[in-house]
Amino acid sequence: MDYDCITKEIRKDIFLAAYSASNAHLASAFSIVETMYALYEQGVLHVNPQNPQDPTRDWFILSKGHGSLALYCELYRRGFFDRDTFLSFSKPSSSLGGEPCFPAVPGVECSTGSLGHGLGFAAGAAFAKKLDGRSEKVYCLVGDGECQEGSTWEALMFASRQGLDNLTVLVDCNGLQKMDRVEAIMGIPSLAPHFQVFGCETAEVDGHDIHAIRACLSAENRSGKPRAVLLRTVKGKGVSIMENDPGWHWRLPKKKELKVFMQELGISEEEAEYAKSLRNGTV
């Protein structure tokens, strides 16, 4: 399967939704495209688009809620909602906000966006499932900058103490946060030792290698500990001028830059114009 072609298509759709809304945390969504694809389309996450509240589903919580477009795109691709809904992103009557909302969006388990909340929520859900002897898994994706929030480590202590091996923490290690490199701001070159010390079974993978992500997440965790998977990623992955530049945390391309986006993501004039018309409400 040509994964490059698929992930280019996903990034294109994410861009069109963002462009139609004239706002998004685009670079933060682009760094997790392969992870979200592996979760939703490579058999890692067992979900039921026909019944999003299916009690036997696995749970996914996007704690770094600002990467919402990567989640919405997979929910749309899996049939939780249609393309028009996806392209309604962040417009007045849409249920799809810049940060995911519960219960408005099918497939979204929890409102997130304020950093440092998702992992505690996920740990609570995993704890309840363990108590009930249920086999569903809980996955939570956090950002590496987000790990500066102390509540993340409170949640990890709890998850380790309770032996929540039904919980997987995915860490998007794109190395950037809004103002600078994570390491420059907090002086921590790698988070792996921290997750180990806090009692997690820890693995590191290339966060743009779908095979590697799938292999890592498909392996059964019998360690009796929560699992942390550190995904080495590139913020803004897929568009050369956006990659690894913190300046793209919260902005869209200007006129000249737009040509680079269109060229590298394979977007036609018509597709860009259509997205723009959604913004203006002319369709």
Binding site: E109, C110, H117, G118, L119, G120, F121, A122, A123, G124, A125, A126, F127, A128, K129, D132, S151, A155, F158
Partner: peptide, 9 residues
């Protein structure tokens, strides 16, 4: 947060 997650489950 965990109490909210437990309630959700």
């Amino acid at each position: 947060s965990a109490a909210a997650g437990m309630a959700a489950a």
